[in-house]
């Protein structure tokens, strides 16, 4: 990393923290939801949740919420904004290739996603005595893999959207269903069977499933189909967004 790269990444980091929507939905909203559900239901084991408490299944499920805000909102909207305002083009006329602007965007969003997840974990742990059945490395690996997969969806949005306004519309259209229909906010177990079937086409559903499975130490049969879907999403979306990508 060159000093310029570090400066750029620090600046992008500051910009992220100055974006109220990002900060609220990444750091405040998930913990707020956790406190709400935990406050109402406690974290006592229940048959409905496979013998776990509502917090135990919510924390891994909320990974979907955390990853969605960075991957489906922050990342595509920033890239579209930079393209529309010709910021990428402006960097093209400096010794620092605009590729690094994109790389620093990915890094910042990745770091912030991890921070959001850690915060959630801490709140669960400190307030509700969260149970954690998995082990650290596999959980971290599934989390990172999920993040990259959803980021690739974000890149596809950035590539598809002709301008900022369209990007905002698409991002909202993708983000909110992913937030509420996938179990990333409202536990899947509470939804009708039909809804659960429909939800299976949304990538974030598989983030939620994979994270829950690895978190609760469930059998590999639950985990692998979802990982496969996420891998497919990653491949297809990366390929398409590379094809569609425009600097201006």
């Amino acid at each position: 990393m060159s000093p310029a790269m570090i400066k750029l990444t620090l600046m992008e980091f500051k910009l992220f923290t100055r974006n109220f929507i990002n900060m609220f939905f990444l750091l405040v909203f998930p913990s707020l939801m956790l406190l709400l559900f935990g406050g109402i239901f406690g974290n006592e084991p229940e048959a409905l949740y496979g013998g776990y408490g509502v917090i135990d299944i919510s924390v891994p499920a909320y990974a979907g919420m955390v990853i969605s805000i960075t991957g489906l909102m922050s990342l595509p909207l920033t890239i579209c904004e930079y393209r529309e305002k010709k910021i990428l083009k402006r960097f093209q006329a400096t010794p620092l290739s605009p590729v690094y602007v994109i790389i620093s965007q990915i890094s910042v969003n990745l770091l912030m996603t991890i921070a959001g997840m850690l915060l959630l974990f801490l709140v669960g742990r400190l307030v509700f005595n969260l149970r954690f059945m998995g082990s650290f490395l596999p959980v971290a690996a599934v989390f990172l893999f999920s993040t990259l997969s959803i980021f690739s969806v974000g890149f596809l949005i950035a590539g598809l959207a002709p301008n900022m306004r369209a990007a905002t519309a698409i991002a909202n259209l993708v983000y909110f269903p992913m937030l509420f229909l996938t179990g990333a906010t409202i536990p899947m177990e509470l939804m009708p069977a039909l809804m659960q079937k429909i939800a299976a086409v949304l990538p974030v559903t598989h983030v939620v499933r994979a994270m829950k499975a690895i978190w609760l130490g469930e059998a590999a049969e639950v985990l692998f189909p979802s990982l496969l879907v996420l891998g497919g999403v990653l491949l297809v979306c990366s390929y398409l967004s590379l094809k569609l990508f425009r600097w201006e």
Binding site: M11, K14, L15, R18, Y82, I87, R90, A93, T94, P95
Partner: peptide, 17 residues
């Protein structure tokens, strides 16, 4: 790009910088 300075016709910069 190390040797030239450029002002483009219509660049905006990041608002919150």
């Amino acid at each position: 790009y190390g040797l030239v300075g450029v002002q483009l016709q219509d660049t905006a910069y990041q608002e919150r910088v």
